[in-house]
Design a protein around this nucleic acid. Sequence first.
DNA 1: CATCAGGGCCCTG
DNA 2: CAGGGCCCTGAT
Length: 325
Amino acid sequence: MTKTINLKYKTTTLIKPIPPYNFDPTVFKPSHYPDPLKLYQPGKYWFVLRLGEMVCGIKLINRGTTTRPRVQIVIFSASKLSKGELKEIVNEVKYRFEFQRDISEFFQKFKNDKVLSAYLKRWDGMHGSCTQDLYGLLMIAIFLQNTVIKRSVQMTKAMLEKYGIRVKFDNKVLYYFWTPKEIVNVPEKELKSLKVGYRAKLFIKTSKTFIKESISEQELRKMSVEEAKNKLLKIYGVGPETARILLVEAFHHYDIFEHVASWQQKIYSRLLFNKKLVPTKKIIKYVKKKWGKWANLAASYIWEDIFWQRKQGKNIEWLEKEIRL
DNA sequence: CATCAGGGCCCTG
DNA sequence: CAGGGCCCTGAT
């Protein structure tokens, strides 16, 4: 069991995101599987931010509205932060939650769209966001590979409890991932004892790649989708679905909609065509043609909507069957 | 009890 | 480019 890091030093800052910015559906994505990395309550969001050697606890608080957004960032740290550190942390949070990205064009363009308008009304101002850094999200993507959600949840918990960091702040206890360096020398056998199966090899191999090739998240952020995609696909263990997750979530590319996994296919078939199973090619063609460079953001409005309904207690039988939590 | 697919990916032929 | 194997688990 890892020891607990206690963060007591508090720094607060207020951000004015570019409107429209809808706090709740942006910070929290109900389609994601539950993990001990973050905590959401309406208007509030807690998570651990690991930046180089620095470990902070972050609490985001909604202090505004979609049209006049204000977000308070409370940073919990072990000691007083320098100005430079504070700036670095705030910039990172700004990027991950898209406080400064203007997507008003999207709403202008599709406010009268037959399919989309109802969703836009309901979730007006929702952005994409990513709680983890690239490495952390890659670990999650590996947990998702070739298994059912229940097992992903269980593997995530077991690995975090053994190799992750446990961080206490604001009376919450949350985890964050190990660093690549911390895991590369763990024997594969030891990882396997946590029942992660063949993924043990992937954790070690991808972590080695992160160290050796010094994969720079900052560099990848600046690249075009295609460039970033080619780079990511070179990582052993990263295929089309994992690349999609990373490009969309960690790098916020709204313009790609090229790969639909089979479980997603079933859900999109229902949501877009009200049918049991539509060929992925047809789904992709439909979404791209309708929403163009906003394809992924548009699809996410429809996608997350059904999971919000589920979270709010609505029993959607066909959905339960597909996700098997 | 056995069998098998599951929120992929790599390797082989 | 199709198909088998991979770890393990719970569903059937």
